[in-house]
Amino acid sequence: MSGTPNQGPGLRYPSNKKSIYDRNLNRTKNAELSRAAFAYLFIEMIAYAQRGVSNVGDLEQKLNTQGYPIGLRLLDLLLSRSSNPLASIRPTRILPLLQFIAQTLYRHLFGRPADALEKSSTEPGQYMLFDNEPMVSQYVSLPRELSSLNCAAFVAGVIEGVCDGAGFPTEGVTAHSVGEQEQGKDAKAMWPDKTVFLIKFKPEVLEREEILGRGGG
């Protein structure tokens, strides 16, 4: 027999008659990837982002742009994969959305939930998501000339993508290293990469949130 498949055009079925549409969407268990492989890929991503970039802000913006489409897609993927049918509805309020990011998204990406979630006391509509040791900067040592860079800008892009995809436009999600002066020397030594993601929603999101709050309350 020759190797040419005896089939017409259209969807080709493997020998066990199961296409990818027959497989379960829930294949999250044992689907972990090599961290080293990611580290090497991330090196190339940063090298790519560094092309034609003059300052740290632009570089972070480029990393953010790389993460954004991942966030857009992950929102739908994670919702359609969730086993609980009630949980597969898109979050419509700010808190469930942030919970989704801190729990579901973080578990999917990094195998653990985010470390803390806070609301800014000074600025309305600004939320802070803390990560004590971001996986993406695990192996990164910054050179002196780029010491203000935070590679978790990539993760910030993912978060921004999720927010936008869910219909919560933001004025940008940014990643900042938590400085010594805020946390004290000991905390800095314990979590040298501690990062805070600042999520600032647009005014119309806050307006809607208020209306929804009144209607529901």
């Binding site: 940063i46 192996y139 990164v140």
Partner: peptide, 8 residues
């Protein structure tokens, strides 16, 4: 880990 996997 910390040298070869460092992007910089």
């Amino acid at each position: 880990d910390y040298v070869m996997k460092n992007p910089f």
